[in-house]
Amino acid sequence: MSKIGYARVSTADQSLDIQIQKLTDAGCTKIFSDTATGSNTKRNGFIELNKYLRAGDTLVITRIDRIARSVLDLQNLVISLRENDIQLSALEQSITTDTASGKAFLDMLAVFAEFELNIRRERQIEGINAAKAAGKYKGRKPLSNKIKEEIDSLYLKHYSISAIARELKVSRNSVYKTLRAQQPTKL
């Protein structure tokens, strides 16, 4: 039975050091980490962690929001861990999945973590709307007429959409939008 740690920060501006120190102090023999948002399910450290965990291990995290961003994510993780005889322990919330009360508390914390995430999203949208109303948030600059003409020209020369996007360093979506506006019947 080994204690295996997992640490995650959302951006490169943040440091993993405090989490790693807490996991080390808790007796973790191996620690996996990621610098990525919690909503990103393709985190390399998390993938490697899941490959490494064995029956009888305890997965240790500092807080539940380091490993899951929604109640559903957390419940799926806990079910997967339980099926493989792996326990989950969160240090700062003093919870573990080896007791009924620990499981219930874990679910309640996940609900509040998801609520906090949703509130943050709502505030962000409110801020963006206020910035738009004040004329400070205008989105991406439109493509210049020169770029639009080049898109049209390359398309007429039978370049693929991807090749046009690469050549002009614009997104494929921008190429499609430009072509639809200039040649609606050809797409």
Rank of each mutant, 00 (worst) to 15 (best):
M1K: 08
A7K: 03
R8N: 07
A12Q: 12
D13I: 02
D13L: 10
S15N: 12
S15C: 10
L16S: 09
D17A: 14
I18E: 12
L23K: 01
T24R: 14
D25T: 06
C28V: 02
C28T: 02
C28Q: 02
K30Y: 07
I31Q: 04
F32T: 00
S33E: 13
D34H: 03
A36H: 05
A36N: 03
G38D: 00
S39I: 05
N40Q: 09
T41Y: 08
T41C: 03
T41K: 13
L49Y: 00
N50Y: 03
R54I: 08
G56K: 09
D65V: 00
R66D: 01
A68E: 00
R69G: 13
S70Q: 08
D73F: 06
L74W: 04
L74N: 01
L74K: 00
V78Y: 06
I79P: 09
S80L: 11
R82C: 10
I95Y: 02
T97C: 11
T97R: 13
T99G: 10
S101N: 14
G102R: 05
D107E: 13
L109Q: 12
V111W: 05
F112H: 09
L117N: 06
N118L: 15
E122T: 07
Q124P: 04
I125V: 14
A131T: 06
K132N: 04
K132D: 06
K136D: 08
K136G: 06
Y155A: 02
L156F: 08
K157R: 14
H158W: 06
Y159H: 12
I161D: 03
I161A: 01
I164L: 08
I164R: 02
E167C: 08
V170F: 05
R172I: 06
R172M: 08
S174Q: 14
L179M: 09
Q182I: 10
T185P: 01
K186W: 07
L187F: 12
